[in-house]
Amino acid sequence: MHYVKAKGIFTSDYGINLYRGCTHGCIYCDSRSDIYNFNHEFEDIEVKENAVELLKRELVRRKPFMVVTGAMTDPYVPIEKRLQHVRKCLQLIYRYGYGFSCLTKSDLILRDLDLIKKINEKSKAVVQITITTADDDLCKIIEPNVCPTSRRVDVLKKLDEKGIPAVVWLSPILPYINDTEENINSILDFCIDANVRGVLSLNMGFSLRKGNREYFYGKLDENFPGLRERYVEEFGERNFIYSKNNKKLKGIIENRCRKHGMLYKQEEIIEYMREFPSRFIQSKLM
């Protein structure tokens, strides 16, 4: 871990990244790709020491909107337990009447359900949870340093109990690893049972760019002997690869989501998560 002074806090779409780098160890992580220009080891997490201060400065002078985090780095990496930067930001978001949405794989978010519930009651909150496999044993191979799927399902149920809407990222899908009908249906069962608002599946595949590719292939050699050769033969050096079961798996997701009233179209889910209720904007301005 190391500290830096940040010049700004928001991305162009009002996202924030309090940390840069990650210790979850997911074998497929696109954030390792060379295009992101990391100048430090990926596991040596960069902490924006003035992030909370910068966020407060921005929130006091803007109209409210959805503050989003988790696009580049899971906000609930283990050091968050000690630093509490996310929690401090949530306190500001609640105080100034903004909304909140985050993407995580970690059960550490349970620590902050009190604040997230308050934000949702005051304006709006949406929690996004990544689930890639229904099998805890496989989860520990492809996402080794974060809580297993069964624990994430517990998080979804607790969110439902608190009335906090959730979206499940059923992504990424790794060909010949988790691209089976059984896996997809099992994850959807979890989603239905926890009353999630939507299931975001993108395409049945993932990005495999330079930087990430080398790390991923090394992990294939460790855990799935012979599969690297199959990937190289089938996908070459493509930056984005898809399961041969793409159409069938997408159909399963669409049909079951439609049947159970869950959002599944990417554009609809993104709009839902980004949209801030206009009545709260007006109330703040009055």
Rank of each mutant, 00 (worst) to 15 (best):
residue 3 Y to A: 08
residue 7 K to E: 15
residue 8 G to T: 15
residue 9 I to A: 01
residue 10 F to E: 03
residue 12 S to H: 10
residue 15 G to R: 08
residue 15 G to M: 08
residue 19 Y to N: 05
residue 19 Y to T: 01
residue 21 G to E: 05
residue 26 C to T: 15
residue 26 C to S: 10
residue 27 I to M: 09
residue 31 S to R: 03
residue 32 R to K: 12
residue 32 R to N: 00
residue 33 S to Y: 04
residue 40 H to F: 14
residue 41 E to T: 08
residue 42 F to T: 03
residue 43 E to W: 11
residue 46 E to P: 00
residue 48 K to P: 01
residue 48 K to I: 03
residue 53 E to G: 07
residue 55 L to D: 00
residue 56 K to P: 01
residue 58 E to I: 14
residue 58 E to L: 12
residue 59 L to S: 03
residue 60 V to R: 07
residue 62 R to G: 02
residue 69 T to Y: 02
residue 70 G to D: 06
residue 74 D to S: 03
residue 76 Y to E: 00
residue 77 V to N: 03
residue 79 I to C: 10
residue 80 E to K: 02
residue 86 V to H: 02
residue 96 Y to C: 05
residue 96 Y to F: 14
residue 101 S to A: 13
residue 101 S to F: 05
residue 103 L to C: 10
residue 105 K to V: 13
residue 106 S to G: 07
residue 109 I to S: 01
residue 111 R to S: 10
residue 113 L to A: 10
residue 115 L to Y: 13
residue 116 I to C: 06
residue 116 I to H: 04
residue 117 K to T: 10
residue 118 K to L: 15
residue 121 E to G: 09
residue 123 S to Q: 10
residue 126 V to I: 15
residue 126 V to R: 02
residue 126 V to K: 00
residue 128 Q to M: 09
residue 132 T to P: 04
residue 132 T to Q: 11
residue 134 A to K: 04
residue 135 D to E: 06
residue 138 L to H: 07
residue 138 L to M: 13
residue 140 K to W: 00
residue 143 E to N: 11
residue 145 N to G: 12
residue 148 P to C: 14
residue 150 S to A: 13
residue 151 R to Q: 14
residue 152 R to H: 09
residue 154 D to S: 11
residue 155 V to T: 11
residue 155 V to P: 01
residue 160 D to H: 11
residue 160 D to P: 01
residue 161 E to G: 03
residue 161 E to N: 06
residue 163 G to H: 14
residue 166 A to G: 11
residue 174 L to I: 14
residue 175 P to E: 06
residue 177 I to C: 03
residue 181 E to L: 06
residue 184 I to D: 03
residue 185 N to G: 01
residue 185 N to K: 14
residue 186 S to V: 13
residue 188 L to M: 11
residue 191 C to A: 12
residue 191 C to D: 13
residue 191 C to S: 11
residue 192 I to G: 09
residue 197 R to Q: 14
residue 197 R to N: 08
residue 207 S to L: 09
residue 210 K to R: 14
residue 213 R to Y: 12
residue 214 E to H: 00
residue 214 E to S: 02
residue 219 K to C: 09
residue 220 L to K: 00
residue 223 N to H: 15
residue 225 P to A: 11
residue 225 P to I: 04
residue 225 P to E: 10
residue 226 G to Y: 05
residue 227 L to H: 03
residue 228 R to K: 14
residue 232 V to Y: 05
residue 237 E to K: 15
residue 240 F to P: 00
residue 241 I to N: 03
residue 245 N to Q: 12
residue 247 K to F: 10
residue 247 K to E: 13
residue 247 K to R: 13
residue 248 K to Q: 09
residue 248 K to V: 14
residue 254 E to P: 03
residue 255 N to Q: 12
residue 258 R to W: 02
residue 258 R to A: 12
residue 258 R to S: 13
residue 260 H to L: 10
residue 263 L to K: 07
residue 264 Y to C: 14
residue 269 I to Q: 00
residue 273 M to Y: 07
residue 275 E to R: 15
residue 277 P to Y: 12
residue 278 S to A: 15
residue 281 I to Q: 10
residue 283 S to I: 15
residue 285 L to D: 08
